[in-house]
Structures are given as structure tokens and as C-alpha cells.
């Protein structure tokens, strides 16, 4: 386990990449129960600015948290996800490949655990930042022996 004490401020972490498929999109729509025409209606979305279905905006964010766990290091002892601020800059389409880049920008010790603030960017295959923001996590301290 990677505890609060092990978190280094400023150290960049880059995740493996993942190609977004139609299957991701359909599964997400079913799970969330969200059928925005922008993501589920090819006829309507083709006539719009996007020129076709776009990936539901929250899906890449969800996938970025999974990608984070695939970085080869011991898992962070997360006690709770406290909150975040997030910006959507560019749409993603089926076939786009995303990865995420993050670094800890602040850590604050508390009585039980500590707060870690992470800056995260999601990049597409061209290296463009498509989504970005700041996440706040509560992380466990190393148990005393």
C-alpha cells in the first residue's frame, strides 16, 4: 500500500492509454440511464456541430480513475474521494485513445489520514488536453506497528 506519508508533491504520473469504443459508450448509457442524443442518436448528432456521436462527457473521467490504478506501483490507500472540479475542453469520439497525466499539488495531514489534492489532465492521441481538473482525496496514514 502507498500511504499518505509516501505521497510526493509534484511527482508526475502518467497512465497507460485506452481506446474508447462504441461498447464503452453503450455500456455507460445503460448504466447511467443517460440517453443524450449527442451520444446516442447518430442521425441527430451528425447534423450538429460535433458531426456525429460524442463520448458521454463523464465517461473519460470514470475511465481515468481506472487507468490510474494500472500505473505499476502499489495502490494508494484511498479512504474517500472528497470532491473535484472538472472542465471539459474538447469532445471525444469513438476510436479516440485517452491517457491521463496527474501530479499531487498539495497534501495536508489530518488526525485520521490526510488530504491529497491531485491535478489531472486527460489527453487524446494527439496529446491535446480534452478534460482537466483538480481532485481531493482522503488517504490513510501508515498504520503504526
Amino acid at each position: 500500500m502507498f500511504y499518505f506519508e509516501d505521497v510526493v508533491v509534484g511527482e508526475p504520473v502518467e497512465t497507460p492509454a485506452l481506446t474508447l469504443t462504441e461498447a464503452h459508450m453503450v455500456r455507460y448509457a445503460g448504466l447511467a440511464g443517460e440517453w443524450e442524443p449527442r451520444s446516442t442518436d447518430e442521425v441527430v448528432s451528425r447534423r450538429s456541430e460535433s458531426g456525429g456521436r460524442v463520448i458521454p462527457d463523464l465517461l473519460p473521467l470514470c475511465i481515468s480513475s481506472g487507468l490510474g490504478w494500472r500505473v505499476p506501483k502499489s495502490p494508494l490507500a484511498v479512504l474517500a474521494f472528497m470532491g473535484f472540479e472538472w472542465k471539459f475542453s474538447l469532445p471525444l469520439r469513438i476510436g479516440d485513445t485517452i491517457r491521463s497525466r496527474s501530479r499531487t499539488v498539495a497534501k495536508r495531514s489530518m488526525k485520521d489520514g490526510g488530504v491529497v489534492v491531485e491535478e489531472r489532465e486527460i489527453l487524446n492521441q494527439r496529446g491535446e488536453v480534452v478534460q482537466s481538473g483538480r481532485l481531493t482525496l482522503l488517504v490513510a496514514k501508515r498504520p503504526r506497528k
Binding site: A32, G33, F84, W86, P91
Partner: peptide
Amino acid sequence: AIQSGLLTRGMRPFATIAFLGLRWKF
């Protein structure tokens, strides 16, 4: 994700062009 879909069942949809961002607390 669930709340996002759930709310679409409680309101008439907006003519949304894009989702710009959010500030969220768990």
C-alpha cells in the same frame, strides 16, 4: 453518473450543445 441520468427523467431536456464543467463534493 447515475444522478446525471436520473435527473434527465425528472425534467424536459435542455438544448445542450456541450457540458462545460462541474464542481462536486462527495
